[in-house]
Design a protein around this nucleic acid. Structure first.
Lengths: 174, 174
DNA sequence: TCATAACTGTAGCAGTTGGTACATTAAAAG
DNA sequence: CTTTTAATGTACCAACTGCTACAGTTATGA
């Protein structure tokens, strides 16, 4: 997964990957069967454990805005999450033209975040449809901003923008 | 450009492209020199004419919120812009792991929209730094939502989310 | 101890890749 | 009409692709 996140899955090749891992393409095929399955496993591994991440913070008494802020921090601060997010973003982009291969992961990457986040927002008092919309703002909106951040490296601009987005998604509708 | 938007640029191959165009890979190389140059030309062609699009609406007396709304409509309604946006999104994702190849187009795709949009927002009364942040919300935030929309096809949820984002970017800060 | 199963290295296959060499035809320019 | 330039087809190259066949080694368990 780390190699895929660094080199991308678009042009991933078994031999260079095997060389980087100190093994041979022969072994990769032996363990994973096909390259497709290998990529699928990497993408599955990139999927984070959302319930734990969310429940821990909700039980700690954090407000939705606080949860969203720490989510943005996770997305942007160089940690374990950054390469995973990059991998998922690439899979989402590739799903645009190859939905049969990556579509499943792309849809799951969205759904897996929106649903539990919407639940948190409902408990904070938002109506169902609005809670789903606000969760979508946080998940897909912040992801768009994260992509911007990765590409331009402009911290101030993207942080400011994230604040606007978080306020819109967690504040009350006027 | 149309072929690239439909089949993706990640695994683009000269021979199938040539076949779809009714010519031969020989001719593609003859006209473009290299495949890399061909892709670069397609990406350049995908870049929209922003000033015209923006100025026309500003001079028509539209508010920033109105401009943003029509931008979202352009992004999602099946028109000329949708395949272009898809192409740029793929280039942005590929730029994550191959910045030397796609980085230029990715950064440009962001900058070319944020700068003129920020100017519109400044004229609407927002301070410079805030105007840039709000423009970023509209460009990268809405792009994230558009990606969501393309992948899930969920119109109501993404439209609702876009409304929240547009309100956050064009409304007054509390 | 011995049979079975898991592991791993070498070599290679058929297919595809971007790009080129060479030749030929068509068009434009003088 | 002649010369020069552009356009196009055929055949091919070396490199790389995912994957497999075969053989040999190592570990496991009865």
């Amino acid at each position: 997964m780390r190699y895929a996140a660094e080199h991308g899955i678009a042009g991933l090749s078994l031999r260079p990957l095997a060389a980087a891992l100190g093994t041979s393409s022969r072994m990769l095929v032996h363990y994973f069967g096909t390259k497709e399955e290998l990529v699928a496993r990497a993408l599955t591994a990139a999927r984070p454990d959302i319930p734990e991440l969310l429940d821990a913070r909700r039980e700690a008494g954090e407000t939705p805005a606080g949860i969203a802020a720490s989510l943005w921090r996770d997305l942007t601060t160089g940690g374990e999450r950054k390469p995973r997010t990059r991998l998922l973003l690439e899979a989402m982009a590739l799903a645009l033209t190859q939905p049969d291969v990556y579509g499943k992961f792309a849809a799951e990457a969205i759904e897996a975040w929106v649903t539990p986040l919407a639940r948190v927002l409902r408990e904070a008092g938002h109506r169902r449809r609005d809670a789903v919309a606000r969760a979508t703002v946080l998940v897909s909106g912040l992801r768009g901003l994260a992509l911007d951040r990765y590409l331009t490296g402009d911290r101030q601009r993207t942080d400011d923008a994230a604040r606007h987005v978080i306020r819109a998604a967690t504040g009350l509708t006027p």
